[in-house]
Nucleic acid binder design. Structure first.
Length: 604
RNA sequence: GCCCAUAUGGCUCAGGGGUAGAGCACUUCCUUGGUAAGGAAGAGGUCGUGAGUUCAAGUCUCACUAUGGGCUCCA
C-alpha cells in the first residue's frame, strides 16, 4: 500500500476510505494531494480532528454534523462556554497536539439499535440518526474520541497538517429558523502548506476588493446609522458611476423596443391584495395609513406597469408591449442579512414587463436572454442560468404553472442554452429563469431574472383585442437584467477592484497642471470634455507637482493628463498610463478621438 | 429575527477607572515645481446612544442602535 494512499474511488464515483475498502482493493486509488476527492477526505477528517480537540478543551460539548462544503468544512456543536474568534487559536493548537499522538483512524460498524443505546445521552446524535435510514451505522475512532460518521476519512492523523480554522458563527440546528442555535466553526484544509497559504492570500486579496472598502475609499456610497440600516446614500462619485450605467441601459432598452414608464412609489393596499403581494409578500412590505386608508410602499413595480397597460385599449397588433422603469422598491429584509450594497432595504431595479400573446413567449424569452448576454459580455462576467419552479407560497393553477415552467425550459433548450433547476425557487406568481453571476469572493449572486406570469394578468383583468375581435389575456414577462443597480454596482466594484473601464468611471480624466499658468488651459479642456459627456477634474491644489501626480495616480482614474508650457503651446496633452507609468503625447484632437472611442465601447 | 464579535476626529488605528493621541485627509501661508509624498502653522472628537456601578467611566455592567462573520431569505 502506498504511503500516500488515503482512499479509493469506485465505478460509481463514490469515495471509499481505506478503512472501508480494506486490503487488496481494486478500485482507483486516491493519493494524498489537492484533488477534489482527496480534499473531501482530508477536510472531513480535519472536521473530526477539530471535534476531538473541542471535546478535550470543552468536555461538555455535543456534536451535530460536520460536513465538507465548497469552502472547506464546518462542524456544528452545542457548548456551555461562549466561543469567539480568539478561541480558534487554542483549538488549532490542541489539534496539532493531537496529531503528534499519531492516532490511527479506525472504523467499526454497529447496528442502529446499538447506536441508539450508545448515544442515548446525546440528543444531537439522536437527531442525526433520525435522518439515517440504514440499519448499520459506522463509528470512527481516533484515540478516545469516537464519532458517528459515514466517512470517508484519512487512515491516520498525519495527513491533517495543513489546516486553518477560519470563523465562528451561529447556525440553526438543521437550518430551521425556529430550532435551537448551535455554534459552528468553519475551517479549510489542503494537502500541502503552499496551497493553504495561497488560499489565505486569495482571501486577503478578495478582502481588498470588497465593495464596502473600495466604496468608502472612492467615496461612492455611504450608510448612516442615524438614518437607518440598509438605506444607501449615493455620494457624487457613486452617483456619476450609476448615472453612466443607467445611461448605457437606457439606450440598450430603447434600441430593443422598450418604452420608459414610471409608476407611483406607494399604492392602496387593495391593489396589493389583488396582486397577491399582501398575502404572499406582506411580511416584507412597508405599510402605512393615509386618510384612514391603508397603503403599501411598492416592493415590486408590476402593478404600475399593469395599470399603464390597461389605460388604453390594446390590439394584438400592439403586442408585445415592453415597459421598463428604473423602479425604486422597498423591502423589509431582516436586519441580520443586510450586507453593503449587496443586500439593502431600498434599491432600484432595472425592471421591465413584456405583455405578449402566449405564442410570443419563447421569442420574447430568448430576446431577453440575448439582452442579458450582451450586458454580461460588456463587463466580462461569467454567469449561469437556473430555472426556478413553483414555491410553497404561490397563487394560480398548477396547470398554468406547468405550462409557464415548460415554456421557459423549452426556450432555453431550443437555443441550446445550459441551465439548472431550482425546485421551489420561483416567485409566488410564476416560474423564472435566474441569472447568477459570481463576485470576486466567489459568491454567487442572483442578478438578472426572467419570470413568466399568467396570474397577474388574470387577477387584474388585463386584456387585448385579438385577431378574431375577441378579448384575450396577454402573458406578462417580468424581467431584470442587472437585478438592481445597488447589487450590480457592488459586484462591478469588486470585479474591477474599483478600476472601472472608461465608459463607467465616475471621474474619467484628471488634469494635473504643472503650474498656475496652466490651470486655465486644463479647465478649458475639462469643459470641452464635459460637453462630450466625459467627467474630469483639475488638480490645481497648492501641492507639489509630484504630490499631485501621486494623488491622481491613486484615484483609479483611467487617464492622468499632465499639462505644462509644452502642451499649452502645442495644443496637446501628456498622458500618463497609470499601470505602466509610461507617458505619451497627443494633440487635443487626437485625445478627443481616443476618448470618444472609449465611450463607444459602452454601447450595447 | 437568531448566535458570536466590534464601535475612539472624514479615513486607518493606539490608549484600558483619574477627564483624549498618531498617521493620512482637511484649512491657511510659504514654495511655481515636467511625472508617485517640499516646508510651516492651524482647525477638528462630551470616545455609537441611553441608563447603571463608582468620589471618579472611552475604560466596568446592562439595554438599544449600527457594522462585521454566519444561519435563514432574496434583486
Amino acid at each position: 500500500m502506498s504511503e500516500n494512499l488515503i482512499g479509493y474511488i469506485d465505478d460509481q464515483g463514490n469515495i471509499l476510505d481505506t478503512q472501508t475498502a480494506g486490503e487488496n482493493c481494486t478500485a482507483t486509488p486516491i493519493e494524498y494531494d489537492n484533488s477534489e476527492q482527496a480534499l473531501e477526505i482530508v477536510r472531513h477528517s480535519t472536521a473530526h480532528l477539530m471535534a476531538q480537540a473541542i471535546t478535550e478543551l470543552y468536555p461538555n460539548s455535543q456534536f451535530f454534523v460536520g460536513p465538507v462544503v465548497d469552502e472547506g468544512f464546518y462542524y456544528d456543536f452545542r457548548i456551555d462556554e461562549q466561543i469567539g474568534e480568539n478561541d480558534l487559536k487554542g483549538i488549532e493548537k490542541k489539534m496539532k497536539e493531537l496529531i503528534k499522538k499519531k492516532y490511527k483512524i479506525e472504523k467499526y460498524e454497529i447496528s442502529k439499535e446499538e447506536a441508539l443505546v450508545k448515544f442515548a445521552n446525546d440528543d444531537l446524535k439522536l437527531k442525526v440518526m433520525e435522518r439515517i435510514t440504514d440499519d448499520t451505522l459506522s463509528i470512527y475512532k481516533q484515540g478516545d474520541f469516537e464519532d458517528l460518521c459515514r466517512g470517508p476519512h484519512v487512515p491516520a492523523l498525519r495527513f491533517l497538517h495543513n489546516f486553518k480554522l477560519t470563523r465562528v458563527a451561529g447556525a440553526y440546528l438543521g437550518g430551521d429558523e425556529k430550532a435551537e442555535m448551535l455554534t459552528r466553526i468553519y475551517g479549510i484544509a489542503f494537502a500541502d502548506k503552499e496551497s493553504l497559504k495561497a488560499h489565505m492570500t486569495m482571501l486577503e486579496e478578495a478582502k481588498k476588493r470588497d465593495h464596502r472598502k473600495i466604496g468608502a475609499e472612492m467615496n461612492l456610497f455611504m450608510f448612516d446609522e442615524e438614518s437607518g440600516a440598509g438605506l444607501p446614500f449615493w455620494m457624487p462619485q457613486g452617483a456619476k458611476l450609476r448615472a453612466k450605467l443607467e445611461d448605457i441601459l437606457h439606450k440598450a432598452h430603447r434600441v430593443r423596443g422598450y418604452e420608459p414608464v414610471r409608476g407611483p412609489e406607494i399604492l392602496k393596499a387593495d391593489m396589493w391584495r389583488t396582486s397577491g403581494h399582501y398575502a404572499c409578500y406582506g411580511e416584507n412590505m412597508y405599510l402605512t395609513t393615509i386618510d384612514e386608508q391603508e397603503y403599501g410602499i411598492k416592493p415590486m413595480n408590476c402593478i404600475g406597469h399593469i395599470q399603464i397597460f390597461k389605460q388604453t385599449q390594446k390590439s394584438y397588433r400592439d403586442l408585445p408591449v415592453k415597459f421598463y422603469e428604473y423602479g425604486v422598491v422597498h423591502r423589509h429584509e431582516k436586519s441580520g442579512v443586510l450586507h453593503g450594497l449587496l443586500r439593502v432595504r431600498e434599491f432600484t431595479q432595472d425592471d421591465a414587463h413584456i405583455f405578449c400573446a402566449p405564442d410570443q413567449i419563447a421569442t420574447e424569452v430568448i430576446d431577453v436572454v440575448e439582452f442579458v448576454d450582451s450586458v454580461m459580455k460588456l463587463f466580462g462576467f461569467e454567469y449561469t442560468m437556473e430555472v426556478a419552479t413553483k414555491p410553497e407560497k404561490a397563487i394560480g393553477e398548477d396547470a398554468v404553472w406547468e405550462l409557464a415552467t415548460q415554456g421557459l425550459k423549452d426556450a432555453l433548450t431550443e437555443n441550446k442554452l445550459p441551465f439548472t433547476i431550482d425546485e421551489g425557487g420561483g416567485a409566488f406568481y410564476g416560474p423564472k429563469i435566474d441569472v447568477k453571476i459570481t463576485d470576486a469572493l466567489g459568491r454567487k449572486w442572483q442578478c438578472g431574472t426572467i419570470q413568466v406570469d399568467f396570474n397577474l394578468p388574470e387577477r387584474f383583468g388585463v386584456e387585448y383585442v385579438a385577431e378574431d375581435n375577441t378579448r384575450k389575456q396577454p402573458v406578462m414577462i417580468h424581467r431584470a437584467i442587472l437585478g438592481s443597480f445597488e447589487r450590480f454596482i457592488a459586484i462591478l466594484v469588486e470585479h474591477y477592484a474599483g478600476e472601472f473601464p472608461f465608459f463607467l468611471a465616475p471621474t474619467q480624466v484628471i488634469f494635473v497642471p504643472i503650474s498656475e499658468s496652466h490651470v486655465a488651459y486644463a479647465k478649458a479642456l475639462k469643459k470641452t470634455l464635459m460637453l462630450e459627456g466625459i467627467d474630469s477634474e483639475v488638480y490645481d491644489k497648492n501641492d507639489s507637482l509630484n504630490k499631485r501626480i501621486r494623488t491622481a495616480e491613486k484615484q483609479r482614474v483611467p487617464y492622468v493628463v499632465i499639462v505644462g508650457d509644452e502642451e499649452v503651446q502645442g495644443n496637446s496633452v501628456a498622458i500618463r498610463n497609470r499601470r505602466t507609468r509610461e507617458q505619451y503625447n497627443l494633440t487635443q484632437d487626437e485625445f478627443m478621438v481616443e476618448l470618444t472611442q472609449q465611450l463607444q465601447e459602452g454601447k450595447i
